[in-house]
Amino acid sequence: MQDRQGLATRVFPSDRPVDLPPVLLLHGIASSGNGDWVEPGTVSALNDAGRTVVVVDLRGHGDSPAPASAAETGAPAQAQDILAALDGVGVETFDIAGYSLGARLAWAVAEEAPARVRKVVLGGLSPVEPFSMVDIAALRKAVAEGVQPEDPFTGMIAGLVGSRGPEHAPGLALVVEGLASTPFEPKAWPVQTPPVFVVGQDDMMTQGIERIVDLVGGAELITVPGDHFGALAGAEFRGTVVRALGQ
């Protein structure tokens, strides 16, 4: 079997490097590393703090190749993709900041390679698996034929998938399908240092996150201004990432 193509990966070195590992940034669903991390200024803020930053586009997103099947987009498979991308740029030990889907996959990366992960920020993390509520057959039909799903939530996901254009929609639908087949069911935190959870004060997607925080002894929960999208773009979120990973 031919090896699948790796993820699009960019490294942003600092002009004033400090003696800390690189920071891996993981974006949300139907977004990209550029949209979630470069444009809002998080990469620049981390560089200013002396950190080298690694930004990947998840499979089916940004400049990364589309998946061939849903088997390539379950959480464990995506974690292996991410680790292979880090191997490709020579990064062994690293910190992680992930947002929304990126936070979900940051947890999966920590499970796959706990000895390589130093500190983690989990932003905008849903305490449940939202994609398990998607009618996959209806989503496939929406992408292939433009048929609007009857279920409102599936219709919302179909709209999100379709918003990236016909060239990305089939791959994004496979991402949703793969994640639905490997739902988020967190147990013990695998890394020695507990993570920092960051949520927007008006973010409905993170309601009930305290249940997940309570699973991790010593974890910190920080609330910043904004809803699910506004929090990510805010200065308080950027500052929290820099401070939490800089200790």
Score class of each variant (00 low, 15 high):
residue 233 A to W: 03
residue 243 R to W: 13
residue 34 N to T: 05
residue 215 L to N: 01
residue 44 S to N: 09
residue 159 G to R: 12
residue 172 L to E: 11
residue 159 G to F: 12
residue 153 F to V: 02
residue 131 F to L: 14
residue 73 T to S: 10
residue 37 W to L: 03
residue 246 G to Y: 13
residue 195 P to Q: 05
residue 110 A to N: 05
residue 145 E to H: 15
residue 136 I to D: 07
residue 162 G to N: 11
residue 5 Q to I: 04
residue 114 P to C: 10
residue 69 S to R: 02
residue 23 V to N: 05
residue 110 A to R: 12
residue 123 G to W: 00
residue 100 S to M: 03
residue 73 T to G: 04
residue 3 D to R: 13
residue 93 T to R: 15
residue 20 L to M: 06
residue 226 G to R: 06
residue 96 I to C: 07
residue 75 A to P: 08
residue 107 W to Q: 10
residue 67 P to N: 02
residue 41 G to R: 01
residue 43 V to A: 01
residue 168 H to G: 00
residue 17 P to Y: 09
residue 121 V to M: 07
residue 246 G to H: 12
residue 102 G to D: 12
residue 216 V to Y: 00
residue 113 A to W: 12
residue 212 I to Y: 01
residue 5 Q to E: 15
residue 154 T to I: 10
residue 215 L to R: 11
residue 23 V to S: 10
residue 241 V to M: 04
residue 119 K to I: 04
residue 194 P to W: 00
residue 37 W to K: 05
residue 140 R to G: 10
residue 194 P to Q: 09
residue 31 S to E: 01
residue 75 A to I: 04
residue 37 W to M: 04
residue 29 I to D: 13
residue 208 G to P: 09
residue 105 L to D: 07
residue 114 P to M: 14
residue 93 T to Q: 15
residue 147 V to Q: 00
residue 78 Q to H: 11
residue 202 D to G: 03
residue 121 V to K: 04
residue 193 T to V: 15
residue 193 T to G: 00
residue 86 L to G: 02
residue 178 G to R: 06
residue 160 L to K: 08
residue 168 H to C: 04
residue 34 N to I: 00
residue 126 S to L: 02
residue 66 A to N: 14
residue 131 F to A: 11
residue 163 S to M: 11
residue 163 S to H: 08
residue 132 S to L: 07
residue 141 K to S: 15
residue 192 Q to R: 13
residue 31 S to W: 00
residue 105 L to I: 07
residue 196 V to P: 05
residue 140 R to I: 07
residue 186 P to S: 07
residue 215 L to E: 09
residue 74 G to D: 13
residue 56 V to F: 13
residue 129 E to L: 08
residue 88 G to W: 12
residue 124 G to V: 04
residue 12 F to Y: 14
residue 214 D to P: 01
residue 190 P to C: 06
residue 214 D to T: 05
residue 179 L to S: 07
residue 243 R to D: 13
residue 61 H to N: 05
residue 207 Q to M: 10
residue 221 L to Y: 02
residue 92 E to T: 15
residue 236 E to M: 14
residue 170 P to D: 01
residue 245 L to T: 06
residue 188 A to V: 12
residue 51 R to E: 10
residue 199 V to N: 12
residue 244 A to N: 11
residue 216 V to G: 02
residue 131 F to G: 09
residue 130 P to W: 01
residue 203 D to V: 02
residue 73 T to P: 11
residue 48 D to N: 05
residue 131 F to S: 14
residue 207 Q to A: 07
residue 211 R to T: 15
residue 20 L to N: 04
residue 79 A to K: 06
residue 192 Q to M: 08
